[in-house]
Design a protein around this nucleic acid. Structure first.
Length: 929
RNA sequence: GCCGAAGUGGCGGAAUUGGCAGACGCGCGGGAUUCAAAAUCCCGUCCUGGCAACAGGGUGAGGGUUCGAUUCCCUCCUUCGGCACCA
C-alpha cells in the first residue's frame, strides 16, 4: 500500500495527532483525591545529559507506561509522573568546558530530553513535572536538610527526634554526658565496661557553652567532621566512596583520587543501619538487589576485646567476629591513622613508623589497591597483653587494617585468617593453631568453623559454643563485650562545586554552625560567571569551593545572634535531589509544605498488593541498587520518624529492567566498525568495503564501540508504537538483551497486520468487520488472548503478551468475517502497548472517547480452553503416539484410550505393563518391561 | 577471592514451574502475485541419516533423584553484574 493511499498506516501523522490530543485533553492528569483505588507508578527520572536519551531509558518507561494504562483501564487512579535529576557534576563539567552557564545547558538538555520522551507517547501527568534544580524544588531539599541538621538519633527509641528534645533532656539531667562527650541515656551506657573503672558522668548545664555546642553538634543527623575523604584535586572536590572507581579514580572524568582528611558535611546514615537492614524484608524487591543492600550495610556480629598495652595505661580496643580464636592471637595491628600509634612507638622504631605512616597517607586509592597482594607494615616496638593467656604480643602498624571499620585495630590470628596469615608469613610472626579443621584439611590458613585446641579450658568446644562462652567470660571479667559492626559508613554529603543545592547554613564566630530559619528558605544558588572550581594536580591543594569567590554573598548575618557570619560554601551532592522526588510529585505545586500530608497518605497508602506501602511500582536500572535506593530509604525513614510521611519505606515494589546492549563488530586488528560499514547479508558479518570477516560481540552501547542506537532514528523510520513494541518484545524486561535493528520491522509488520485487519484500502472500517458472532474457535482464541495479555501484564512478561496478540492477528486476518466485538476487545488489549495506533483504530471503529479509560476486557475461563485436547502417549518416556480426548477427561478413560491405541499395542506387545501415569490434559506415560 | 544472575536452533527468545523442547519474531530456502520490483500471501526451516514414511540424537559439560528433568540436587566450565584487605 502506498503512502498516499487512504488505507495506509501513517504512523507519523497518527502519533502526532494522538500526542496532541492527550496533551490538549489532559487525558492523563491524576487527581489527588478520588474514590478509585490509587496506583502510584514511578520511573527513575533521568539525568538530562547533552547526549539525550539512549535506548535504555524508554525500556523501563515503556514498561511502566503499559502498567499505567492497564491500571487506568482497570479502574485505578494512576499517578505516573516524570521529572529531571538535573544538579551535578556532568552538567557543570560540560558548562565549564564550553563556557556556558550550567543553568543554560541544563535548561537546554531538559528541553531536548523532554521532547524525546514525549515522542514515545508515555501517559505521564506532565503537570507534575519537576526538576531538582527548580528553586521551588530545592527549597524543600534544603528544608529536609534542616530537619536532619536539627535532629538527632535517639538510641532509646531508635529513631530521629528533634535536637531540642535532646537539649531539654540534657538540661533537665535526664541524660548525662560522658567525659568523651557521649550521651548517656541509661545506666548500661553509663559504665565504661572495658576499662573496668566507673567513670564520672558530667552534667550538661555545668559545662561551658562551647562544650555544650560541640556535644550537640556531634549528635546531629547532619554534622561536620574532619574525616578521611576521597579528594580529587583535578575536579577540585571530594567524592563519595561510590563515586570512586575500583582503580582509585573519579567516576566522572577518570582523574586520580587521594585519601585526605578534610572537614566535611556528613549524614548519619549509620544510625539507621539496623533499620535499613530490617526493613528490607518488608519490601517487594528483586532478591538480588536486597542482597546487594544487605552486603553494603554489611552487618557482622562478634565481640569487642580490650588489650592492655604493656608498660602503659592505655588499652587497645579491637573488634573481632572470631573471639573463639583469641588464644591464637600472636600479634596486633593498628591502622596507620590509629590515634595510639604515636604513644606506643618506641624510640628505636619511631623513624621507621613515622616514615611508614606518612607514606601510606600519601598513597592514592590506586596505589593502595594495586598493592593488595603484598602486605606491608612496621613493628611499633610496643607490646600488648593478650587478656586470655597473659601472653605478650607485638604491636604492628599496617595499612591492611583500616581506621574506618571496627576500632581501627585488630588482634591478628594468623592461623585462621588469610590476611593475618600472609602478613605473619612475610614478617616471620608466630602462627598457632586454635581451630582444628575436619580430617584431611591443613589448619594453617583454615578460616572456617572447627573444634577449639590450644585454648585452655575452652578446648574441645565447637566454634559457635566457644564464641558464646568466651563472650560471656569477657563480659564477666570486664575485658570485652558482644558487639555488632556495619560496613556502612556515614554519607559524605558536601561537594566543593557550584552546581548543587547550597547548604542553608552559616558559620558564626560566636554561635558556631547555625542553620537558617525555615522562613529564610530558599537559599538561592547565587548567579556567578566564573563557577569553575580550583583544579590542581597537587594532592595537597586546598579545597576552594566556587561559591567562596562571591565575597558579598558569603558575608551574611547570623540568624541567631544577628552578628557577622559567613555562609557555608559547599553544595550538596547530586544524590540529594533524587532522595525525595517521589514525594514532591504528589503535590508539586505546594508552596507551604514539601507535600501535603493527606495527599501523601492517599498516594503512599498500603494496599493488598503492596502491604508495605509507598510507591506501588518503581521501575529503573539496577545501577542504582545501593546508592540512590539506600539514600532515599534513609531520608524517608528520617521523615517518617519526624512525622512527615506515613510509611516506613518509600518504594513498596521495585523492578529492575535489564540493560540493553548491542552488537559490536571488530576487524582483525581490533578496530570497531560502525553499523553503516557492516554487511550482514551473508552467513558471517563482513566489512562492506574490504569484505573482511568481522568478529561479533554483544556489549554495552558506547561511542567508542560504534554500537550506539539512537531512538530518534528508529522512531522516525518505524514510529513510536513500533519502538515500544520492539523493546518489549525483545525478551523479559529484567534480562539484559542485545538490540538488533534488523528485528524491528518484524514487530512493525504486526502493527500493519493489525491495521489491515480493521482498516480497508479506502481508509474506512474494513468490510470484513461485521456484527456477527465469532465462531467457536475465534471466540476461544479471543478469550485465551484476553487472559494471556492480562496475566502477562500482571507478571510484567510483556514479550509473551505481544506474542499472543500476534497469534490473534494472524488468525483473525484469515477470517472473511471478523466480529466487531472481538476486534474492539483486541484494540483495548493492544492499547497499553501501542497506544497511538489503538486510539486511531478505536476512533475509526466509531468511538468518540479515548480508549484510555475503557474498561479492561474480561474473559470466561471456560472459553480459554479447547473442547478437545491432544495428549502425547509415551512408552518408557518416549513419545510413541498421540490421542485426542475431551478436555478434562477422567484418568480412567484416558488410560483406556491410550492403552488401546494401535501403535501402543504394537509397542507394548510382549511386554509387561508395570505402571501407567496419566497427567490430565498433558500426557500418558506407560512403563513397560 | 566472595556474592548474585544466566548459558536452549543461524539470531532474539518461548515452555502453564517436574509433563509433547523450540511458541512468537528475525533470518534463510521454495512458491504465488507482478512486465519487473517493493509490499503482500502460502509452504518449509533444531541436528544427523533417508525420496519418503520413519529412526536416532538434542536445552554449556559430567554425574544424581524420578515413570518422566530446560526445570530439582552435586561437581565443573563460560559469560555478564556487584563487592573486594570489612578483622
Amino acid at each position: 500500500m502506498a503512502e498516499n493511499d487512504p488505507g495506509f498506516y501513517d504512523f507519523t501523522t497518527i502519533e502526532r495527532k494522538w500526542q496532541d490530543f492527550w496533551q490538549k485533553n489532559q487525558t492523563f492528569a491524576a487527581k489527588n483525591h478520588s474514590d478509585k483505588p490509587k496506583y502510584y507508578i514511578l520511573d527513575m527520572f533521568p539525568y538530562p545529559s547533552g547526549d539525550g536519551l539512549h535506548v535504555g531509558h524508554p525500556e523501563g518507561y515503556t514498561a511502566s507506561d503499559i502498567v499505567s494504562r492497564y491500571k487506568r483501564m482497570n479502574g485505578y487512579n494512576v499517578l505516573h509522573p516524570m521529572g529531571y535529576d538535573a544538579f551535578g557534576l556532568p552538567a557543570e563539567q560540560y558548562a565549564v568546558e564550553h563556557g556556558v552557564h550550567p543553568r543554560e545547558t541544563t535548561a537546554k538538555n531538559i528541553a531536548n530530553i523532554e521532547k524525546q520522551i514525549k515522542m514515545f507517547g508515555f501517559s505521564y501527568d506532565w503537570s507534575r513535572r519537576l526538576a531538582t534544580t527548580d528553586v521551588d524544588y530545592y527549597c524543600w531539599t534544603q528544608w529536609i536538610f534542616l530537619k536532619m541538621f536539627n535532629s538527632w538519633f535517639d538510641p532509646s527509641v531508635k529513631a530521629a527526634r528533634p535536637i531540642s528534645e535532646l537539649i531539654h533532656k540534657l538540661e533537665s539531667g535526664e541524660y548525662l554526658v560522658s567525659p568523651f562527650d557521649e550521651i548517656i541515656y541509661d545506666e548500661v551506657h553509663g559504665i565504661n565496661a572495658l576499662s573496668g573503672e566507673p567513670i564520672g558522668c558530667l552534667k550538661y548545664d555545668e559545662l561551658e557553652p562551647d562544650r555544650q555546642r560541640e556535644i550537640i553538634d556531634n549528635q546531629r543527623l547532619a554534622y561536620m567532621a574532619e574525616v578521611p575523604v576521597n579528594w580529587c584535586p583535578k575536579l577540585g572536590t571530594v567524592l563519595a566512596n561510590e563515586e570512586v572507581t575500583n582503580e582509585g579514580r573519579s567516576d566522572r572524568g577518570n582523574h586520580p583520587v587521594f585519601r585526605r582528611a578534610l572537614k566535611q558535611w556528613m549524614l548519619r546514615i549509620t544510625a539507621y543501619a539496623e533499620r535499613l537492614l530490617e526493613d528490607i524484608e518488608k519490601v517487594n524487591w528483586p532478591e538480588s538487589i536486597k542482597i546487594m543492600q544487605r552486603n553494603w550495610i554489611g552487618k557482622s556480629t562478634g565481640a569487642e576485646v580490650s588489650f592492655a598495652v604493656d608498660g602503659c595505661e592505655e588499652f587497645i580496643e579491637v573488634y573481632t567476629t572470631r573471639p573463639d580464636t583469641l588464644f591464637g592471637a600472636t600479634y596486633m595491628v593498628l591502622a596507620p591513622e590509629h590515634p595510639l600509634v604515636d604513644q606506643l612507638v618506641t624510640a628505636e622504631q619511631k623513624s621507621a613508623v613515622e616514615e611508614y605512616v606518612s607514606q601510606t597517607a600519601r598513597k592514592s586509592e590506586l596505589e593502595r589497591t594495586a598493592e593488595t597482594k603484598d602486605k606491608t607494615g612496621v613493628f611499633t616496638g610496643g607490646y600488648a597483653i593478650n587478656p586470655v593467656n597473659e601472653e605478650r604480643i607485638p604491636i604492628w602498624v599496617a595499612d591492611y587494617v583500616m581506621m574506618g571499620y571496627g576500632t581501627g585495630a585488630i588482634m591478628a590470628v594468623p592461623a585462621h585468617d588469610t590476611r593475618d596469615f600472609e602478613f605473619a608469613e612475610k614478617f616471620g610472626l608466630p602462627i598457632i593453631e586454635v581451630v582444628q579443621p575436619p580430617e584431611g584439611i591443613d589448619w594453617r590458613g583454615y578460616v572456617d568453623d572447627g573444634i577449639a585446641v590450644n585454648s585452655g579450658k575452652f578446648d574441645g568446644l565447637s566454634t559457635a559454643e566457644f564464641k558464646q562462652q568466651i563472650t560471656e567470660w569477657l563480659e564477666e571479667n570486664d575485658l570485652g563485650r558482644a558487639a555488632v559492626n556495619y560496613k556502612l559508613r556515614d554519607w559524605l554529603f558536601s561537594r566543593q562545586r557550584y552546581w548543587g543545592e547550597p547548604f542553608p547554613i552559616v558559620h558564626c564566630e560566636k554561635c558556631g554552625v547555625v542553620s537558617l530559619n525555615e522562613d529564610q528558605l530558599p537559599l538561592e544558588l547565587p548567579e556567578m560567571d566564573d563557577f569553575s572550581p580550583a583544579s590542581s594536580d597537587d594532592p595537597d591543594s586546598p579545597p576552594s569551593p566556587p561559591l567562596g569567590k562571591l565575597t558579598d554573598w558569603v558575608k551574611t548575618s547570623c540568624p541567631n545572634c544577628k552578628g557577622a557570619a559567613k555562609r557555608e560554601l559547599n553544595t550538596m551532592p547530586q544524590w540529594a535531589g533524587s532522595c525525595w522526588y517521589y514525594l514532591r510529585y504528589m503535590d508539586n505545586g505546594n508552596s507551604s509544605e514539601f507535600v501535603n500530608s493527606d495527599i501523601e497518605k492517599y498516594w503512599m497508602a498500603p494496599s493488598e498488593a503492596n502491604p508495605c506501602g509507598g510507591v506501588d511500582l518503581y521501575i529503573g536500572g539496577a545501577e542504582h541498587a545501593v546508592l540512590h535506593l539506600l539514600y532515599a530509604r534513609f531520608w524517608h525513614k528520617v521523615l517518617f520518624d519526624l512525622g512527615y510521611v506515613s510509611t516506613v519505606e518509600p518504594f513498596g515494589k521495585l523492578f529492575n529492567q535489564g540493560m540493553i546492549r548491542s552488537f559490536a563488530y571488530r576487524d582483525k586488528r581490533g578496530v570497531c566498525i560502525g553499523y553503516a560499514d557492516v554487511d550482514l547479508s551473508g552467513d558471517k558479518p563482513r566489512h562492506k568495503e574490504t569484505g573482511e570477516e568481522l568478529a561479533e560481540t554483544v556489549e554495552k552501547m558506547s561511542k567508542s564501540l560504534k554500537n550506539v542506537v539512537n531512538p530518534n532514528e528508529i522512531i522516525s523510520e518505524y514510529g513510536a508504537d513500533t519502538f515500544r513494541l520492539y523493546e518489549m518484545f525483545m525478551g523479559p524486561l529484567d534480562a539484559s538483551k542485545p538490540w538488533n535493528t534488523r528485528d524491528v520491522p518484524g514487530v512493525q509488520r504486526f502493527l500493519q497486520k493489525a491495521w489491515r485487519m480493521i482498516v480497508g484500502a479506502d481508509g474506512k472500517v474494513s468490510e470484513a468487520i461485521t456484527d456477527c458472532e465469532p465462531d467457536d474457535a475465534s471466540l476461544r482464541l479471543l478469550h485465551k488472548t484476553i487472559k494471556k495479555v492480562r496475566d502477562d501484564i500482571e507478571a510484567m512478561a510483556f514479550n509473551t503478551a505481544i506474542s499472543q496478540m500476534m497469534i490473534f492477528v494472524n488468525e483473525f486476518l484469515r477470517l472473511k468475517q471478523r466480529s466487531r466485538s472481538a476486534i474492539e476487545i483486541f484494540v483495548k488489549l493492544l492499547s497499553p502497548f501501542a497506544p497511538h495506533i489503538a486510539e486511531e483504530l478505536w476512533q475509526r471503529l466509531g468511538h468518540t472517547e479515548s480508549v484510555a479509560y475503557e474498561p479492561w476486557p474480561s474473559y470466561k475461563p471456560e472459553l480459554t480452553q479447547d473442547p478437545e485436547v491432544e495428549l502425547a502417549v509415551q512408552v518408557n518416556g518416549k513419545i510413541k503416539d498421540k490421542i485426542t480426548v475431551a478436555a478434562n477427561s477422567d484418568e480412567e478413560s484416558i488410560r483406556q484410550k491410550a492403552l488401546n491405541s494401535i501403535k501402543i499395542l504394537a509397542e507394548t506387545d510382549g511386554k509387561e505393563i508395570l505402571k501407567v501415569i496419566v497427567i490430565k490434559n498433558r500426557l500418558v506415560n506407560i512403563v513397560a518391561k
